[in-house]
Amino acid sequence: MYLIHIACTFKPVKEFPLFSSGNSMNRRLAIKQAALLGGAVAFFSSCSEQAKKASIALQKLNLNAKDEELLMKIVEAILPASSSPGAARLNVHHFVLIMVDDCLSPQDQKVFVDGLYSIDAFCKRNFGKRFEKSDKPTQAEMLTAIQNNQDLKEKKEGEIKIMKSFVGMCKRYSLQGFMGSEYYLTQIMPYELVPGRYHGCVPV
């Protein structure tokens, strides 16, 4: 789905020059080219890893192992490991993929995939650094800036809208996946299948 099949009829491009240089001239050019190409940037990068499929079976999304790895980094940035496990260790990215695959409309799925494909470039354009290459605190700052539409250099409202929606979906499903996980519901907020009681007034 989402053009990947079509894109992959082209010869995969291993080195894509758009973001190879940091100088401002090239950067402006890069943005221009990226805007022209739209999602194309992303599917080339996807194709180079196409042989490796995502590790869980998906019905509608056509995402590969590299996309999955990026998503894993995003969920880990949203809920990182600390004294307790982070989202990646709880396989929250798998839950996010399942929910996007099964519980979103085709329109929202497209926004999700577009967002996943373009987050790296978006961050590079707006924060000067690719998302994947940034450390976790920086990634969290990037996600916060996108969510709140703050400090963005992006001029294209459409790009901002997609990225904001994408980050929103990732956050919502990461929270749902984390707080609905076996770890969380046994270690943090133990869930009782059979409480056997209701007390209407107990001290906090």
């Binding site: 949203i78 809920l79 990182p80 990634q139 969290a140 700052e141 996600l143 929270l175």
Partner: peptide, 18 residues
């Protein structure tokens, strides 16, 4: 408060404040 990301957000969901 679920407005943040990263450690701040994680700390929020570990809290048990009513």
């Amino acid at each position: 408060d679920l407005s943040g990301f990263g450690e701040a957000l994680k700390n929020e969901i570990l809290k048990k404040d009513l």
